[in-house]
Amino acid sequence: MTETTAGTQRGESPLAYLKRTWRQNIIYIGFVVVFAFFAITLHDRGFLDPNNILNIARQTAIIAIMAVAMTLVLSSGEIDLSVGAVAGLASVNTALAIAWGGLPAGIAAGLLTGIAVGLVNGFLSTRLLIPTFLTTLAMMGVAKGAAMWISGTAAIPILDRTYPAIFGGGNLGPLPSLLVWMLAVGIIGHIVLLRTKFGRQVLAVGGNVMAARYSGIDTGRIKMAVIVISATTAALAGMLYAGRLQTGRFQLGEGDELSVIAAAVLGGTSLFGGKGTVVGSIIGALMIGVINNGLILMGLEYSQQLIARGAIIILAVALSQAGSKSGQG
C-alpha cells in the first residue's frame, strides 16, 4: 500500500534513472555488452569487418521482421507458432506464381497466402474460441504439409530478375535491401504499437481482456487483426527468403517461430500480454544474430554454439525478469 510509483520522476539524475530502470532496458545493455565482448575478443578474426556486420544484419533481418509482428501478437495476449511454416508456404506459392504469371502474380500469391492463413487462424481463435497456441500449432503442420504437397518437396527456382532485387536479394545503395525491409517494418510496427489507437487497444486487450471488453473494445476484432497481421508478415518473411535464395522451398523458415518468440521475449515483450516493445524485439533478434555469428567466429562447434546460445538467452531473460515482480502493497 505504500509502494512508490514507477515512471519518470522529476528531478532525477540520469544515473539514478538508469539504476532504477536498468532491468527494463537490460536488452540494450546486454546487446552492447555482447557486442563489445565479441568486438574485443574477435577483433583479429574480422568480427567488426563491415562485411561481417552486414552479414549479421542480413541473417537476422527476416527473424526481426517476424518478431515485429510477434510483438503485436504477444502484446495482445496471444501467440503465433505458425510463422515459420507460413513463411515456407508463402515462399513456395510465390515461386510457383511467378513461374505461372510473373512478378505481380508472385507478390499477390505470397501475401494472399498470409492473409488466408491469418483469417483461418483468427476465425478458429476468435469465433470458435480455440486458443491460438493450439490453432497455430496445428496450422504449423498444415502449412508445412501444404508447402510440401504443392511443391512436391522440391525447391522451385525463381527466374524473374526483378523479384530478388526487391525482395531481399539486392542492395539499396550501400544497404542490403533486407535491412531496408527490416527498418521499414520495424518503424511501422513501432509506431503502430506505441502511437496508434489500434496499438492501445492491442495492449489493453492483452493487459486485461475483460476490462477491455467493458471499455467498449471489440476484443475479437482486435485479436483477429493481430493474427492476420502476424501471418501476413510471416508470408512477407517467406517472400524475402525466396528472394534472397531465388528459390521457393518448404524448409525456408522452418523452426523460425522459436527464434522469433525468443527475440521478442528477450526484447522485453511479455509472453502474457499487455506489454510489448518493437524496438526491443528487433534488438533481441539482432542480439541472437550477433551471438550466433560470434560463436561461429570463435570456432565453436555447432553443438557448443547451441548450448552457449541457450545459456546467454536464459541469462538475459532471467536478468530482465528477476526485478520485475513488483511487491504488492
Binding site: K197, F198, A212
Partner: peptide, 27 residues
C-alpha cells in the same frame, strides 16, 4: 472489469475515449 492494472493511469483513461482522441489513426 475496470482496469488494466499493469498499465498507467493515462493508458487506462485513454481506452474508452480513443475515438475522441483525434480523428486520425494516431492517438
Amino acid at each position: 472489469q475496470g482496469l488494466v492494472l499493469d498499465h498507467s493511469i493515462q493508458a487506462n483513461i485513454e481506452i474508452p475515449i480513443l475515438k475522441r482522441l483525434g480523428r486520425s489513426f494516431f492517438v
